[in-house]
Design a binder for these strands. Structure first.
Length: 574
DNA sequence: GCCGTTTTCGGCCCGACTGTTTTCAGTCG
């Protein structure tokens, strides 16, 4: 939380410095620092205690002092001073898409416009026309921007954006003359939320392709339509889609460029300059004669820069470039590596399908085994199982396995970790199960120490194999529990308990950042779907993407083992 | 404001689209 607050302050400082027309590199430093703060695994106050704050790239002496000031006093005096120079509403106006610092200031200087409401009134009543450089189109754009800002509340979950992006790609593929086509941007990097959908395409004749795009039925409004770039807003979600047409010889360079991240790209360009090249979205060029020496594929681009190709999921300037220079990037886990989905629910609790239906569907997806892990009795709302019903379920699974020739079904339970840290099921019965997932579904608001102690207690029992959705966060709905992650991860290491990577698109829990932290402590993971319905098993890819973003290899994830070795691991060979 | 196998000073990524311009500034990604 504290990191988010600091990131927000740094971004606001950058906004104000833009209004002041300050040094652009200073502004960039604040923006970069905001990004860095958002991606940090540890809270700033903790880093401060251990003196590690100034080791973080992008945080120098000055900014670490500002962070320290915020942690100590809850304020950053530089920010407080800067705020006095502008009315707060100016930052709101700056947040309207299409309205930048120059226009914001112009509006304020001309008519004292210092709120979105005021701006809207002036625009609607034609009173902006007197301002130099503002005519009908600009006024219309300002009004569109205001509407857009109101309709778009920030970013969209990957689980919403990715299927939409793939559907639009499918439509564009249908256009005659469409060559290569790929999603770029943060969707391709599989960030948990994305701001917009970027599609990159080669085409013999861009005109008809752009026509087809702007006429798609999913589109509510076209923002721009050029020969190489068009943008539109989709109906319902109000997501923005950008389509860019590039030449074949530039496709790889463009893909790299528009995939980002920005920080990764800047490092690439710096590398290029050092080698006497120039890198842009058209290719890598030799600065002596301006000749293109790479660009058709990403592989070519990375090659001429002397780098190993970097998987999009880890292009975040978090050390991947340094390793790529040495050709020492880790081999990341892939979708096909997962051999069993080991967290799912049936009609016994809050699922909507039978054990057999879940098992058969999993079999059709190519899995070798699954685990049935229904809720325990405290979760009344989910019809959690008491000991008697759990025993019946175990018998049914035994019977299924006797008749089934293919997929194996493991007996399990997602047992609640009660508010005091006890497990919500008899120890004797849990001991008979193949796999026990310990999860928290109540008492979310306990203070950090209590929450951490509760989870550690559960691990101490020796009955729990996996901590389910360890942070409890739900994207856009619920923050993570207050947990001391270092203590939790250290205990998990000690008691040899794995961490779940829950693939449910709104959970993605653990998060990529925490996965990376847990991995650095040597923890093991299981990537699961928590399916309540066979169709939800398709979400596994989201969890695998999170694992890749957390730099996990196949060996870090236990359910990449075959059935025999997976069971052996569960029985204690860890 | 950050950063350093050329540097503790002087660099810091680059181009498309729009609108109002008549050669360009502003905004965005």
């Amino acid at each position: 939380m504290v990191n988010d607050e600091i990131a927000h302050i740094f971004n606001s400082i950058a906004d104000i410095l833009e209004l002041k027309n300050d040094n652009q590199f200073r502004i960039r430093a604040y923006r970069k620092a905001a990004l860095v703060m958002n991606d940090l695994a540890d809270d700033a106050d903790k880093l401060l205690e251990t003196g590690k704050l100034s080791n973080i790239p992008g945080i120098g002496k000055d900014l670490s002092a500002k962070i320290e000031e915020y942690v100590r006093t809850g304020k950053v005096s530089t920010f407080e001073e800067l705020k006095k120079e502008f009315r707060p509403g100016l930052l709101d106006i700056l947040s309207i898409p299409g309205v930048g610092p120059k226009t914001s200031l112009l509006l304020y200087d001309s008519y004292g416009i210092d709120s979105i409401e005021k701006l809207e009134t002036y625009a609607n009543t034609g009173r902006l026309k007197g301002i130099k450089g503002i005519k009908d189109k600009t006024i219309a754009n300002i009004l569109k921007g205001i509407a857009l800002r109101r309709s778009i509340q920030g970013r969209f979950p990957l689980g919403t954006a990715l299927p939409v992006g793939e559907a639009i790609m499918g439509e564009l593929r249908g256009n005659r003359g469409t060559g290569s086509i790929e999603l770029a941007g943060s969707i391709r990097r599989r960030r948990e939320t994305v701001g917009d959908i970027d599609i990159l395409v080669t085409a013999d004749d861009p005109g008809p392709l752009m026509d087809r795009f702007v006429q798609l039925k999913e589109i509510e409004r076209v923002l721009s339509r050029g020969p190489t770039r068009s943008s539109a807003i989709l109906k319902n979600t109000h997501m923005q889609v950008d389509v860019r047409v590039v030449e074949k010889d530039s496709f790889g360079a463009a893909l790299a460029y528009f995939t980002g991240s920005k920080a990764h790209n800047i490092k690439l360009r710096e590398l290029a300059i050092r080698k006497g090249y120039k890198l842009n979205e058209y290719g890598v060029f030799d600065t002596r004669n301006d000749k293109r020496i790479a660009g058709a594929t990403e592989q070519d681009v990375y090659d001429v820069l002397g780098l190993q190709w970097v998987p999009p999921e880890i292009r975040e300037d978090q050390g991947e470039i340094e390793l790529a220079i040495e050709h020492r990037l880790p081999e990341l886990i892939a979708d096909g590596d997962i051999l069993g989905d080991v967290h799912m629910h049936t009609v016994y609790s809050d699922g909507d399908s039978t054990i057999g239906q879940m098992a058969r569907h999993a079999g059709s997806l190519g899995y070798r085994y699954i685990a049935i892990t229904d809720h325990s009795q405290s979760l009344g709302i989910a019809r959690g199982l008491d000991p008697g019903r759990l025993r019946s379920q175990m018998e049914e699974i035994d019977a299924f396995n006797e008749t089934s020739m293919g997929i194996r079904v493991l007996k399990g339970m997602e047992v609640d970790i009660l508010s005091d840290g006890r497990l919500d099921m008899d120890a004797g019965l849990l001991d008979k199960l193949d796999i026990v997932i310990g999860s928290i579904h109540m008492g979310f608001k306990q203070p950090r120490e209590q929450m951490t102690g509760r989870m550690v207690n559960a691990m101490k029992t020796g009955l729990v194999d996996l901590i389910g959705h360890p942070s409890g966060r739900i994207i856009g709905e619920r923050d993570a529990y207050e947990v001391d992650w270092d203590t939790l991860f250290d205990a998990a290491k000690k008691y040899r308990v794995a961490m779940e990577i829950n693939s449910f698109p709104l959970r993605l829990d653990l998060t990529d950042v925490m996965i990376k932290k847990a991995r650095s402590k040597g923890l093991k993971f299981m990537t699961t779907t928590d399916s309540h319905d066979p169709k939800q098993m398709r979400y596994m890819g989201y969890g695998v993407s999170a694992a890749r973003r957390g730099w996990l290899g196949k060996h870090d994830v236990v359910n990449t083992k075959d059935h025999k070795d997976f069971v052996r691991w569960l029985k204690g060979d860890r």
